[in-house]
């Protein structure tokens, strides 16, 4: 069996194990769904009145941002799950078995992707209720969700490195979460970047989150003519950049996480 086939075979076994946990202890899934719904409602009805984005209905503008934020935050599940397995000694068991060294990570990131999928479906319904629509037909819709999930999956690999480095579940939880606040808010997710101080604008424009969000808006027809898009290359090629960012993140963090997994030992 080649290494890749072995990783997929073992990875799928670990994925199934993780899915059983989601089924038996759905609490985490339920709470990870409630949070984005809260965000949709808060931004649509509380902040929405105060934030004016010229040229677009704010609820239409908002959803791409909240979707992106949700999958980004959802990645912290990966950090929590891995730290949990580490502290409970399960990883020791896995590491003593003749299984692929990538399998635990592939299993974790895959089950978290499926978890994210469920959350996004619920959120999408919630968005439709508050008035968000996709204007580009089925292909545009699917392309958008493809970009979204690819990004979510990539973020999981960053979280995997954090989870393997954390010394406890609590640390993994905050460390997996905290850096996402500046990352998501310093972007075009909730506000046009031209409202930022000028020295911050390029940072926000080049933020991967901005590319994903703008890409989604383009793919879903939520970015009408005349909407402020930021400036430069990211404003012109958001979808391309979104895909590149995701691929680059996986290319860097997947090997890092696997190398870390090989060396990690239970504390």
């Amino acid at each position: 069996m080649s290494q890749v086939a072995g990783a997929l075979h073992d990875g799928w076994i670990v994925t199934k194990r993780n899915l059983i946990k989601i089924k038996r202890v759905p609490d985490l899934l339920i709470f990870s769904t409630i949070q984005p719904i809260m965000f949709v409602l808060l931004f649509a009805y509380v902040f929405g009145g105060a934030i004016k984005v010229p040229g677009v209905n704010y609820k239409e503008y908002l959803m791409a941002g909240i979707f992106t934020q949700t999958v980004a935050f959802g990645s912290s599940l990966t950090a929590i799950g891995l730290a949990d397995d580490l502290t409970k000694g399960i990883v020791d068991r896995f590491r003593s078995l003749p299984m692929s060294r990538a399998a635990v990570l592939i299993g974790r990131t895959t089950s978290d992707l499926l978890n994210n999928l469920l959350v996004v479906v619920v959120m999408g319904l919630c968005g439709l209720l508050v008035g968000w629509r996709i204007h580009t037909g089925i292909l545009g819709a699917l392309a958008g969700f493809g970009v979204l999930f690819l990004f979510g999956y990539a973020m999981s690999w960053i979280a995997a490195v954090i989870g393997l480095a954390a010394r406890s579940v609590e640390v993994a939880q905050s460390a997996g979460f905290i850096w996402l606040f500046p990352m998501t808010f310093l972007s075009n997710a909730f506000i046009p970047t031209d409202t930022l101080p000028s020295w911050l604008q390029p940072v926000a424009d080049w933020n991967p989150i901005s590319s994903i969000v703008l890409g989604l808006r383009d793919l879903w027809g939520n970015a009408p003519e005349g909407l402020a898009r930021g400036s430069g290359f990211p404003a012109q090629h958001p979808v391309l950049l979104a895909a590149l960012w995701s691929v680059a993140i996986v290319a860097v963090f997947m090997p890092l996480a696997i190398a870390k997994y090989r060396r990690v030992s239970t504390r």
Partner: peptide
């Protein structure tokens, strides 16, 4: 290997634990 602290998965049944480990032993 059976380590000093039982390393079994709380959320799986006893059977599921063993079957999974068997599969991971290929």
């Amino acid at each position: 290997l059976s380590g000093q602290y039982a390393a079994v998965d709380d959320n799986l049944t006893g059977y599921e634990n063993l079957e999974m480990i068997g599969r991971l032993y290929q």
